[in-house]
Simulated scan of single mutants.
Amino acid sequence: MPELPEVEVSRLGISPHIEGKVISQLRVHDSRLRWPVPDQVKRVEGYQLQRVTRRAKYLLLETAVGTLILHLGMSGALRVVPKTTSLKKHDHIEIEFEHGQVLRLNDPRRFGALLYTDETVDHHKLLAHLGPEPLTDAFTGDYLHNCSRGRTQSIKTFIMDNRVVVGVGNIYANEALFKAGINPKRQAGKVSKKRFQELVPLIKETLADAIQQGGTTLRDFTNVDGAPGYFAQKLLVYGRGGKRCRQCHGQLKEIRLGQRSTVYCTHCQR
């Protein structure tokens, strides 16, 4: 499933091509996505796409009459192509602009979504209970420490909870906890304020590095054959269970936490 960095890179990739352009037509070739695509999405036709923003892993396409809420699901990918370009299999949504370009959502597994709201987008039921964005000033060590008090869940599942902070997916939780030297099994409520103050900048660093790397290595969003997805990363622990720790050269351990693969070093992480 695309994580926050992949979604942010998608936003950065498509925005220059569609922001400020008038939506001439919205075509739904298959409405059977994670939730049925509502007819209201067509209300944006004839209006300028003012900007593309992101909240958690949702892309928000804002117009004067309302906002399209787009989610890539587990396998979704976006590309901007000339409207004369032939449809590919699993191209379920097309947003055509007056300048002849089309934004297409390709989603083989159909776990993505396209919804519409004409209300304040932060009040939408999918967004209303989300925690702060991890790369903003609202996400601090003190905030995370305060949220953790009394929590008995593992620190890894705690920082992956979107009600606490959005976008710290499995890959980035593994990586940040390793950098901070925190055992992912440790109870969140037993982690000190000092360690949270050390962890938060490392979460931000890990996510920012992934976004920056994606911006230079992700496939072209205007390439007809492009299929943006995960980009290569220099991972310290994720996916390296049983291999040598890059710090102490001991063997990395792999377990399941919250039904997600968790890799850590029993020597470096306490």
Results as ranks from 00 to 15, higher is better:
residue 2 P to S: 12
residue 4 L to S: 03
residue 7 V to H: 01
residue 10 S to E: 09
residue 10 S to L: 10
residue 13 G to W: 00
residue 15 S to P: 07
residue 16 P to E: 05
residue 20 G to A: 04
residue 25 Q to C: 13
residue 27 R to K: 14
residue 32 R to W: 03
residue 33 L to H: 05
residue 34 R to F: 11
residue 38 P to Y: 04
residue 39 D to R: 12
residue 42 K to A: 13
residue 52 V to W: 04
residue 55 R to A: 10
residue 56 A to V: 05
residue 59 L to E: 02
residue 60 L to H: 09
residue 60 L to Y: 04
residue 68 L to N: 01
residue 68 L to P: 00
residue 69 I to A: 02
residue 70 L to T: 07
residue 83 K to P: 02
residue 94 E to W: 01
residue 98 E to P: 05
residue 101 Q to F: 08
residue 112 G to H: 02
residue 117 T to Y: 05
residue 121 V to D: 02
residue 123 H to G: 10
residue 126 L to A: 10
residue 130 L to K: 04
residue 132 P to M: 04
residue 141 G to Y: 08
residue 148 S to G: 13
residue 149 R to H: 13
residue 149 R to N: 14
residue 154 S to L: 10
residue 156 K to F: 13
residue 159 I to C: 04
residue 165 V to C: 09
residue 170 N to P: 01
residue 173 A to Q: 07
residue 181 G to R: 01
residue 183 N to H: 09
residue 184 P to D: 08
residue 185 K to G: 09
residue 189 G to L: 06
residue 189 G to N: 09
residue 198 E to Y: 08
residue 198 E to N: 15
residue 200 V to C: 06
residue 200 V to K: 09
residue 203 I to A: 02
residue 204 K to H: 02
residue 205 E to G: 06
residue 205 E to Y: 07
residue 211 I to R: 07
residue 213 Q to G: 08
residue 219 R to N: 13
residue 221 F to Y: 11
residue 229 G to E: 08
residue 233 Q to K: 10
residue 234 K to G: 13
residue 235 L to W: 09
residue 238 Y to K: 11
residue 240 R to P: 03
residue 243 K to M: 02
residue 245 C to K: 01
residue 246 R to E: 08
residue 248 C to N: 05
residue 249 H to V: 04
residue 254 E to P: 01
residue 256 R to Y: 08
residue 267 H to Y: 14
